[in-house]
Design a protein around this nucleic acid. Sequence first.
RNA 1: GCCAAUAUAGCUCAGUUGGUAGAGCAGCGGUUUCGUAAACCGCAGGUCAAGGGUUCGAGUCCCUUUAUUGGCUCCA
Length: 646
Amino acid sequence: MELTIFGKPCEMAEGGSVGQWLKDNAPEDFKKYLAVELADGTVQDLFAPISASQAVKPLTFEDEAGRRVFFHSASHLMAMAVKKLFPQAKLAIGPAIENGFYYDFDIDESFSQEDLQKIEKEMLSLAKKSIRPVRSTLARREAIAKMEALGEPYKVELIQDLPEDAELSFYDMGDFVDLCAGPHLPNLSYIKAFKLTQVAGAYWRGSEKNKMLRRIYGTAFPSKDQLAAHLEHIEDMKRRDHNKIGRELEYFTTVDYIGQGLPILMPKGTKVIQILERFVEDEEERRGYLRTKTPLMAKRDLYKISGHWDHYRDGMFIMGDPDDEAAEVFALRPMTCPFQFQVYLNRTRSYRDLPMRLGETSTLFRNESSGEMHGLIRVRQFTISEGHLACTPDQVEEEFRGCVELAQFFLGAVGLGDDVSYRFSKWDENDKEKYIGNPEDWESAQNEMRKILDDIGIDYVEADGEAAFYGPKLDIQIKNVHGKEDTLITVQIDFQLAERFGMVYIDRDGEKKHPVVLHRTSIGCYERTLALLLEKYAGAMPTWLSPTQVRVLTITDRQDAYAKSVEAALRAASLRAECDLRNEKIGFKVREAQMEKIPYMLVMGDREAEEGTVTVRNRKGDNVGTMPLSEAVALIKKANDEKVLD
RNA sequence: GCCAAUAUAGCUCAGUUGGUAGAGCAGCGGUUUCGUAAACCGCAGGUCAAGGGUUCGAGUCCCUUUAUUGGCUCCA
C-alpha cells in the first residue's frame, strides 16, 4: 500500500496506521499529531488502520480539524469526570465548538462554581492516567442494549434515530464508554490545560418543547501557555464589548423601570446615529430613492392583509384585546412593508414608474422574549434604514445588485466591509406553517435568488429555515465580541405581498401585473450598527463618526479666552469641538481626552495664544505639531470629510 | 419563555458567623496657574435594585418582582 504523508510517498503494510508510521519515522514530535485527514476529507483516529493507498494529512492543533478532535476528546474527558462525581447524571451530547467544547447532562441539581472546580480537578487526575480511547462498533440491537444497561436514555434515543444501516461506534476510555462517531486523540494525556468556562441551560435536541439539560462549556489546549493566551484574548474582547464601553463612554444606558430592550441613547450615541442616518439618507437620494414617513402603528386589519397577524403576532405589541373581533385593536409596527406599500398603492402605476425605490428611516417595535435582549444588539424598539423597491421581473437582478452594492458601500465607509459574511436564507419546507405561499413559489423565488447571487459573484452560505415568512433573504452577517453572529443587513425578494396588497402596474402590453418587491436595509438597524462599531473600534470612533472630534485644552486660565475663540472657529468649520477649561494639569486633561477616545486635542499655552497657533495631538498620543489654527482646522476637516478610518 | 450568575455613592469595588454604611476615582467649594499619565485643602454624595418575610435587630438569611450579563430557543 502506497501512502503520501507530508507530500512524500511511503510504503505501508496492510492494516498499518499513520500514527505508527509517525512514531517510527518522526518519533521526536509525533505527539503533536492528533488525528489524520484522509484524501476524501474525512478525519479518523491517528492509529486507525488505513484501508487504501492515498494521500493523507496528519493533523495538529494548528489545523481546524485537528483542534476539533482535541476539543471533542476534552468534552469526553469532562463527561468522564462528571460521571465519576455525579453518577446520576445522564449523558446527552458533547461536541466540539469553535473555541472549545460543551457537554449536556440531565441532572436535577445545577452545577455550581464549586462543582466546576471539582470537575476540573477530576479531569486533571484522569488526564494524567494516560488513557487511550479505544474504538469499537456494535450492531444496533446490542448498542441499544448496552446503553440501556448503562442507564443512558438519551443515548438510546440517539441510536434509535440513526439510520438502520449506520455504523454505531463506541469509545472506551478507561471505565467510561460513550456512543461516539469519533475520532479521538491517541491519548487523553495530550490534554494538558483546560478551563470550564460556564454552565448554561440547553434544550434536548435544541427544541424548547423538550427537557432543559445542564450544559457545561469549556475550552482545552495542549499547553498551559496556550490556555492562558486564549483566556487573555477573551478578556481583551470583553474590554471591547459595546455593552461595557457604550455605557462607560455614555453612548447609552438603560433604566430598570423603563424596561428590557429599551435603551436610552445618550447624546453621544444619538450623535453617531444621526451622522449615519444623514449619510444614508443623502446617499440613497443620490441613488434614486424617494423618502417616506409612515405611521408607527395601525389597526390589525392591515396586519391581517400582510400576514403579520397570522404569522408574526407573538412578535407584536398589541393595544386592545386581540380576541375581541368587534373592538378597534391597534398594533405597533414590527416591520415597515405594509405601510410603505400604501405609497405605491396611492394611484395606478405604470411600468414607466418602475423601478420605484422608497426609503424610510423607520422605527420598529418587536416584542422579543424576555431572555433575548442584549445591549444595543437585540432590543424591542429600534430604527432601521428601511426600504422597498417595486420593479418588473426583468429589473429584479439589477435592482437586487444595486441593493447589495449600496450595502457594501455603507459597510466599506464605516469600516465593517471585511468583517461580514453572506448568508442565503431559505425557508424550511418541513415547517410550512411559518410561511405564506406555496412550495412552487418558494422554489422558484429561491432559484431566482440563487441565480442572482451567483451572477453577482459573492461568497455565501445557504441556510434553511432562516427566510422571512414572505420570502428568501440575503443576510449580511457579523459577529460580536462574544463570537455570536447577528444579521446586520438584509436584502429580500418578495413574490407574494404585492399580490396580497393588490399592488399592480400597467405593463407595456396594457395588462395589469404584480411587481416584484425587494425589501432591504442599507446599513441595517442603527442601534445594532452602533454596537458593532463600538466593538470594532473599541470606542475610538473614526473622526467622521466621533461624537466629539476635537477638544481644546489650556495650560493655564490665561488662555481661556483664546481657547473659546478656537472652539468657536472649529464649530464654525462644522467640527464637533468642546473646551476643557478646568484647572487641572495638562497631562491629566490629555489623558482624560484619550480615555474618552476623542480623535484630536488642541493644546495651547501663552506662546500659542500670542502667536494664534495650536499644538495638535491625536488620541494615540502623537504630537502632530504646532501650527496656525487654520491649518489645524484643515487637518481635522480633511479626516472628517474623507471619512478615513483612523 | 427556559437554565444560570449578578445588583452596595456617578464609576471601580470593600463590607467578617446578622449588631449604627466604607475607600479610591469622578463631582462641588476654595487654594494653586503649572507644558503632556493624575497639584493641595475641604465638602457633599447611599430607602444597599424594588416589595414582602424571619429576627430584639437584615446590605448580610428566606420568598416574590424588576433589571443587567452569559447560554438555550427565537430574530434586524
